[in-house]
Amino acid sequence: MGNWWARIRELWGHPREKPEQPASHGLSPLSPQASLPEEDSLSVLEKRLGWSFRNRSLLIEALTHRSYINEHPNEGIHDNERLEFLGDAVLQLVVSTDLFRRFPEWSEGRLTELRTALIRGERLALWAEALELGRWLRLGKGEAEGARTRPSVLADAFEALLGALYLDGGLPAVERLMDRLLPEAIDQALRSLEWHDPKGRLQHWSQAVRGKTPVYRVVAVEGPPHAARFTVQVLIGDEVVGEGQGASKREATREAARNALIRLGIENGGETES
């Protein structure tokens, strides 16, 4: 895989060395009235990205929607779909690496669940909005102006931008941008996953209110191996607070957590004594 990435860079003719770039923290807003010549405008975007492109054509390609190419077939430039393809792979690699290092005790399943929440289209569109990427998109006149804020268009352009960053500056260029975007997104995704997962909700409440982490134990397995039914209890300290059944340990565990939430009255905002 490493040789494949290196070959891509060689085909584009970009050296491996990367010039020093000034650190950039945070994303400052732009004035909606700003109207700059293209070169100056791209410099503004580069400043927001924290990277100055050696090959500006890569950046322009990343911003070019297929509707523009349909109306300007003789410009000699591609639309951003190929860069989008590459950017998707780069994004998964960068996010996977970040999560692998950030959560050393997590299982593959938990890492995959969080990565999925971070690379879905809605999140990519939010990142594109944070960069105000829609302002630089090159759209055909036949495309509705609303495409500049259309989530699917923004998400695709964001992936294409990552592909362009990778080809121009390698992983460091992509990581520099994602280091600024990922922390807040990870916090939001974790809160969302905890809320929708009964186990996460119960653990969050139990640690905050009782200072203890719930423990799950299988108390019964019934039926033949190919159709087993599990019974799981969840305990907080020595107290059994919920019990659940399911066709797998995972299903029974989630059901036990869900029943504990109901028994404890957490869904109503606090604990009820039974």
Rank of each mutant, 00 (worst) to 15 (best):
L154A: 01
L165H: 03
R148Q: 09
R150A: 10
H196I: 15
F158T: 05
V174C: 12
E145M: 12
R176N: 09
A189Q: 11
M178P: 08
R176I: 02
L202P: 00
F158Q: 03
V153P: 06
D187T: 14
E194Y: 12
K199H: 05
F158W: 02
A189D: 12
A185L: 08
R201A: 13
D179M: 04
D187V: 14
H204R: 15
E184G: 07
L182Q: 08
A155P: 02
L162I: 00
A155M: 00
L162H: 06
L181P: 06
Y166D: 08
L167K: 04
K199W: 07
M178S: 07
L165P: 00
P183R: 15
E175M: 13
R180K: 11
A164W: 02
G170S: 10
H196M: 15
R180T: 10
L182E: 09
L167V: 11
R201P: 00
L202N: 01
E145Y: 06
A157E: 00
E145V: 11
E184V: 12
L171K: 05
A160D: 00
A164G: 02
L162R: 13
R176D: 00
A173I: 03
M178C: 10
R150M: 09
H196V: 15
A189H: 10
A157W: 02
L167F: 08
A157R: 02
L162E: 05
G169K: 13
M178F: 11
D179I: 05
P198G: 07
M178Q: 11
E184M: 12
D156L: 10
A155H: 06
M178A: 05
R180V: 09
T149D: 06
P151Y: 07
D197Y: 01
H204T: 13
L182S: 11
H196A: 15
S192V: 14
L162W: 03
D168Q: 08
S192T: 14
D197F: 02
L193C: 09
G169L: 13
R176T: 09
L193V: 12
G170R: 07
D168M: 01
P183M: 15
R180P: 02
L182A: 11
A164E: 06
E175Y: 11
Q203E: 13
R180G: 11
R201Y: 07
E184D: 13
R176Q: 10
P198Y: 09
S192E: 15
D168H: 02
S152I: 04
K199S: 08
R148M: 06
I186H: 09
L171G: 03
L161K: 06
R180F: 08
